[in-house]
Amino acid sequence: MPPTALIVIDMLNTYEHEDAEVLVASVREALPGIATLIEHARASASPVVYVNDNFGEWRSHHGEILDAALAGRHRSLVEPVAPDENSLFVVKARHSIFFETPLAYLLGQLKAERLVLCGQVTEQCVLYSALDAHIRHFDVVVPDDAVAHIDADLADAALQMMSRNMSADVCTVKDVEFDG
């Protein structure tokens, strides 16, 4: 198995945006899977990289983003998946985890060839990130029980696109292995 990194997308969230309540319900369903992936990646010594939106706050320090999310209305959705002292952190400003971020360089330094994507939102940031990972020749894995959506129909279509058009392995959390 190629060297694998877990990418946790946009899970440090205050949930103070349009569609937040719809998203919160889906995050609650995906949260156990995301937490399990993080636990398994850490146990195998695979890199865990948090890539998080800065929400237009250009003082984008990862500690400030985490503190704001923990102070938000849905702290219970952040605490189980919060970064630990060994987690890596990349700030993004747009949908893709790669767009104008140092993530590709970081993954090269880690010698990662396979990315497990989890987090939110399936039909937005996860989809665009999977496409950008695919065109950069990474093997992409998306556990469908570890991604949250706003629109279930669009999320299903996005997962189909990732599988069919990007050769992503769309599976379940129990099927994901980390190489350490």
Rank of each mutant, 00 (worst) to 15 (best):
S26A: 15
P2Y: 11
D179C: 12
F98N: 02
F99H: 14
N52G: 08
E123F: 04
R28D: 12
Y105T: 13
W58H: 14
N52T: 11
D19M: 13
A43L: 08
D53G: 09
D169E: 15
L117Q: 10
V170R: 03
P102H: 04
L103R: 00
M162W: 06
A35F: 08
V90L: 06
P102Q: 04
V176D: 06
D179Q: 15
L23Y: 00
L103D: 01
M1I: 08
S44F: 06
D139G: 04
A104Y: 05
P80N: 01
Q109I: 03
M166K: 01
H134G: 03
S129M: 00
I9R: 01
R59T: 12
A157G: 06
A158I: 06
P143M: 09
Y15F: 15
P47L: 13
A112Q: 02
M162F: 07
E100C: 10
V173E: 08
A146V: 12
M1T: 10
L31K: 04
L117P: 06
A43I: 07
H134E: 01
V116K: 10
A30Y: 04
L88Y: 14
D53N: 12
V121E: 06
N165G: 11
L106W: 00
F98M: 06
L31D: 07
N54E: 14
E123G: 00
V147I: 07
I7E: 03
L131Q: 12
S60E: 15
P143R: 06
R136Y: 00
A45P: 00
H134M: 05
Y105H: 12
E29W: 09
V142I: 15
Y105I: 08
V49A: 05
M161Q: 14
S129I: 03
D84P: 02
C171G: 03
Q109H: 07
E64T: 10
V24H: 02
N86T: 13
N13E: 13
A155P: 06
H95Q: 12
A146D: 10
I97P: 01
P3W: 01
Q160Y: 11
H17D: 11
Q120T: 05
Q124W: 10
P80K: 00
D19Q: 13
Y105N: 11
F99T: 08
S163E: 15
E39Q: 14
L154G: 01
V140F: 03
L154Y: 11
A30R: 09
L106S: 00
D53A: 12
V141H: 01
A71N: 14
G33C: 12
D179P: 02
H134Q: 02
V121D: 03
G108A: 01
M162K: 07
D132E: 14
